[in-house]
């Protein structure tokens, strides 16, 4: 069996030059220069072109939802840096409305936890939550596997990726992890400046200085998040379900110090990912800056760094916005590897 398998592999490799799919031509995970080591490095889930291809197919296939209407890509759109354009909160099957803003997806291999409350501890475990959430895909894992097994196309794709057409939840989420883990955004003007491949304007440089003194404690370079859970002082207001979202408090309800804390989001790709905050309540970057400069609420567990808000002169604010604009990575949102396959 093993000999047969490796033999087949060799044949496939020989054929490669003839039929190269350009969206699969460069499937290799590289840690960008001077970045920290990632949390997830595919060590138990070797990254392959075939695994990536399967993961991409699954990501954009509504088969994962109960009524085959919603895919991962519905709420995580490539052109929106894999957030959802103009949606404050996610919309699931039967037009059910969720309670949280679809987070942008990139540089996920550096995340030590997932979701706004950090409730999921591993990239391979992440897909199980939206698939089974009644407000999102509302499907059972058993049904998903049965539906995939019933499709010859998937049997072949799983066989190509994992050497056997046996379809399991583990193989499904590992393929999804290969696709999502490959999504690295590291080609913004800021990155080019840091690599000495480009320059920033005087305003942008001044904004970088403002950023480093006033924002970087939580939005740590180069990922622009330290991935910690913090209360940033948003007013406690009822969500779509008429309740106040306690954030991390949902995961650890017995720990009062966890209430109203949410995972610090990256500041990369803000141009594509509006609206902002865990419930999408702030529509623009200006609204976000207004919050930090004048509207931080002293709610329980407010992060000590925000005790007095953030002071920004009009000039600093304008410079900071110029700098944030250098974190938008157009090559990432247009990367052909991450688009929905035709």
């Amino acid at each position: 069996m093993l000999a047969f398998y490796s033999c087949k592999k060799d044949n496939v490799e020989e054929q490669e030059p003839v039929a190269v799919d350009p969206s699969l031509a460069n499937i290799e995970f590289k840690v960008p220069e001077s970045w920290p080591l990632p949390v997830y490095n595919f060590s138990n889930n070797p990254l392959t072109k075939e695994g990536f291809k399967l993961g991409r197919k699954l990501f954009f296939d509504p088969i994962l939802s109960r009524d085959n209407s919603i895919s991962c890509g519905t709420c995580h759109q490539p052109f929106a840096a894999f957030s959802q354009l103009d949606h404050a909160v996610s919309h699931g099957v039967d037009d059910r409305v969720g309670t949280r803003n679809s987070p942008a997806l990139f540089n996920l291999n550096w995340h030590s936890s997932f979701f706004w409350d950090g409730g999921v501890n591993h990239i391979e475990m992440q897909p199980f939550a939206p698939i089974t959430n009644p407000l999102e895909m509302d499907e059972t894992l058993a049904n998903v596997i049965a539906k995939l097994q019933a499709r010859d196309e998937y049997k072949q794709l799983f066989k190509d990726a994992f050497g056997t057409d046996e379809i399991t939840t583990q193989k499904m989420t590992r393929a999804l992890a290969q696709f999502m883990g490959m999504m690295v955004s590291s080609n913004a003007p800021y990155d080019k400046y840091m690599r000495h491949e480009g320059t920033l304007s005087a305003d942008e440089m001044a904004g970088l200085t403002v950023f480093r003194s006033k924002c970087a404690a939580c939005h740590t370079e180069p990922l622009f998040s330290d991935f910690s859970l913090r209360n940033n002082g948003l007013a406690l207001q009822n969500n779509e379900k008429g309740i106040i979202d306690s954030g991390r408090g949902i995961i650890t309800p017995l720990d009062p110090s966890s209430f109203y804390k949410f995972k610090v989001p990256s500041l990369r790709n803000l141009k594509y990912t509006a609206p902002y905050m865990h419930d999408g309540r702030l529509a623009t970057i200006d609204a976000v800056l207004d919050h930090y400069t004048g509207d931080v609420q002293h709610t329980p567990n407010l992060d000590p760094l925000l005790e007095n808000g953030i002071s920004l002169s009009a000039q600093e604010r304008q410079q900071l916005k110029a700098f944030l604009n250098t974190l938008n990575d157009e090559t990432f949102v247009k990367d052909i590897r991450f688009q929905e396959p035709k």
């Binding site: 138990n44 999921v120 990239i123 475990m125 058993a142 949902i250």
Partner: peptide, 23 residues
């Protein structure tokens, strides 16, 4: 095995013995 990513066999979440929102 609660922190090591996707498992299979007896530990497959398909058995329904798994909290998906809080690993």
């Amino acid at each position: 095995r609660n922190v090591s990513g996707a498992q299979t066999g007896a530990l497959d979440p398909i058995h329904g013995m798994f909290w998906t929102w809080s690993t």
